[in-house]
Design a binder for these strands. Structure first.
Lengths: 359, 359
DNA sequence: GATACCAATGCATGCGGATGCAATCAAGCG
DNA sequence: CGCTTGATTGCATCCGCATGCATTGGTATC
């Protein structure tokens, strides 16, 4: 027992007062956080035993495990993840970066759920301006996150930096041709072709396109696909308005489209939010019947779009699958950083609402 | 110089090979994370100098600071927050707990912004079931978060636990009469009275109430306030339907309300999402004009409610102010844990949309 | 010019847990 | 019954940084 006790004061080289450094066993929970040493003393075992007891795969006998668990419960001990991280260099933290706008609101909670299932925690960063990216990268490095999931664009410099530092990175709906920039996404082009095909089949001839911001890659993919398809089908080059992915932006775009002399009979929006804006503007201000006088389609599968007020025809992105895939990819790369950069593309699902005349 | 070099190998008791333990100065960035020791060696100073250089208020001369900064830049050094936390016992991490439903979608990003301003980071937890709360509490303790902001209910046991452990806690829109359960909220009762008063003034006589889940405190506050006010104004006791705060729940509630013989001329919903559901159901299925045949009001100030398709009459919660106040309170309590438990209540803002006949 | 004083710097140590290694113990085996 | 073997357990050490303390050098004071 003497041996045990001596082993429990941290191995200090010179300890002039050998007893008083150890707080009495009974004064527990009084502010001072419970450490594995406290548990060890309480259970009459070594600190390493306690550590092993809380480490998956640790070599501990059942008897000892029971004893330690009990002592731990009595003291309310929880291992200090910070200290563990310092040694193991694994934080179980995943940085999640989202830009402020245009994100599916469910995204975060879906992601959170998938990460929890894997025993990972979510360090959350919102990007507003470019400077925020700088800060986020800095912070996530300081916290030694195990990986990054980004639903926002990052500069190539930042991507390279993460790669150099060995932090796996998966993008959601952003495509980069850079080593290390893994991604999952929706097949925007395919979905857009579906929409265009159906609209053209139904006899629409004059198209208007409401794109997203010129810099948005997602917008470009969707818009280009739509334009290409229209060209293939021999439809006149449509008018293009650049919006900002917001409801208000959609309304403005609609207004602008109908200022021209050639009024469209089909409006193709780069996302649902703008499509909803278009519908509202059409009904409220332009007094146009949807879909009788003009068809409106979006892209995303946002839940408000499916409310009967809009019943939006759109392409739903398989968010669940995408997020799950992203987490899978990330976890795989945390386990084996040598895995090649990969892109996974999921087909969307055509949602035939009543906002477009499809026959 | 010899003195310096010797000080830079960690003070190991027995170091048989004094040179080879120090990686050469030139092999940088090769996987091995850069530490303050690396920077120190590169700059020819002690590790503590490096540490002081990166610690606000550290005593370092300008010359040395410059030299160290340069060395740090050259090596790409970033202090390891993990190690720092271990020593300082401050993680700069704030746990944010949100329940899955009924949260204002902007909430997270607003919160994120305010935390960033304070140099804090956001550890995110989504609660689905009761078991998730258990896990969240466990995790946030393990990560030694500095504080907790919860937009979800927590059990009294959990609240007490956090208090015992000295982790400040602020609720958003949840009220508890428990020491340590600080909260910011909206004055639900006041807002609800505004709505009722206006509706009654406009001559509404038959009210229907669409409440939230029976267990929801927010729903209770809003619903009770509405009922009380109706009673005060001498209006007949309205029918009450319990919904689940969702769009679909609102539609069902509306359907149920209009199955009865006494059809309401005003429907008061415990949140905007259900109010939107009511409106859609009224228009699509019940063929009722809003607000001509029935008035619908909500509560929250959700942005979709303000789309012209709904133009919801509602009370907008001052989310920005609330979140800012929550962060302020939390930060204050991190600085001084002895501060008394506090509740801050903000008035909402009446939004007079077109979903209700107000005169 | 000697003493007092302050700023800058280095040294040693600790934060709490994980793990290589050695020591121990028990069971198994011939 | 002695030795081998494997499973437990304890010991010492390290993870990377922050800080109390001692030391140094330089400046101010009279």
């Amino acid at each position: 027992m003497a041996k045990l006790n001596s082993s429990l004061s941290r191995p200090k080289s010179t300890s002039p007062k050998p007893k008083s450094t150890l707080p009495a066993d009974d004064q527990i929970g009084s502010g001072h956080a419970v450490t594995s040493y406290d548990v060890a003393r309480h259970a009459g075992v070594s600190q390493s035993a306690v550590s092993r007891c809380f480490t998956p795969g640790g070599s501990v006998s059942d008897k000892m495990r029971a004893r330690i668990k009990q002592a731990a419960d009595e003291l309310g001990y929880q291992p200090n993840a910070i200290a563990r991280m310092l040694f193991t260099k694994r934080s179980n933290l995943i940085a999640v970066i989202v830009a402020n706008l245009g994100v599916n609101p469910d995204f975060t909670s879906i992601l959170s759920k998938h990460l929890i299932e894997r025993g990972l925690n979510l360090l959350f960063f919102t990007l507003d301006q470019e400077a925020d990216a700088e800060r986020a990268i800095e912070q996530l490095w300081q916290y030694r996150v195990d990986g990054v999931i980004s639903a926002s664009e990052l500069s190539e410099a930042h991507i390279s930096l993460l790669r150099e530092r060995g932090i796996p990175l998966v993008f959601i709906n952003r495509l980069y041709e850079i080593t290390g920039a893994n991604s999952v996404g929706c097949d925007h082009a395919e979905g857009e072709r579906w929409l265009i095909d159906r609209l053209v089949q139904a006899g629409h001839k004059n198209f208007g396109i409401v794109a997203g911001p010129k810099l948005s890659a997602v917008s470009r993919l969707r818009t280009h696909a739509a334009l290409d398809r229209l060209q293939v089908l021999g439809i006149d080059k449509p008018a293009i308005i650049y919006g900002d992915f917001t409801y208000e932006g959609g309304r403005q775009a609609m207004r602008t489209l109908f200022e021209g002399k050639k009024r469209p009979d089909a409006v193709v929006c780069a996302n649902d939010l703008m499509a909803i804006g278009c519908i509202d503007e059409a009904r409220e201000v332009l007094s146009l019947g949807i879909p009788d006088q003009v068809s409106v389609v979006g892209f995303d599968g946002l839940s408000p779009g499916q409310w009967s007020a809009f019943s939006l025809t759109t392409v739903r992105q398989p968010m669940q699958s995408m997020v799950k895939a992203a987490v899978d990819m990330l976890v795989a790369r945390i386990a084996d950083p040598a895995l090649a950069t990969e892109r996974r593309v999921f087909s969307g699902e055509l949602v035939e609402g009543h906002s477009a005349r499809l026959k």
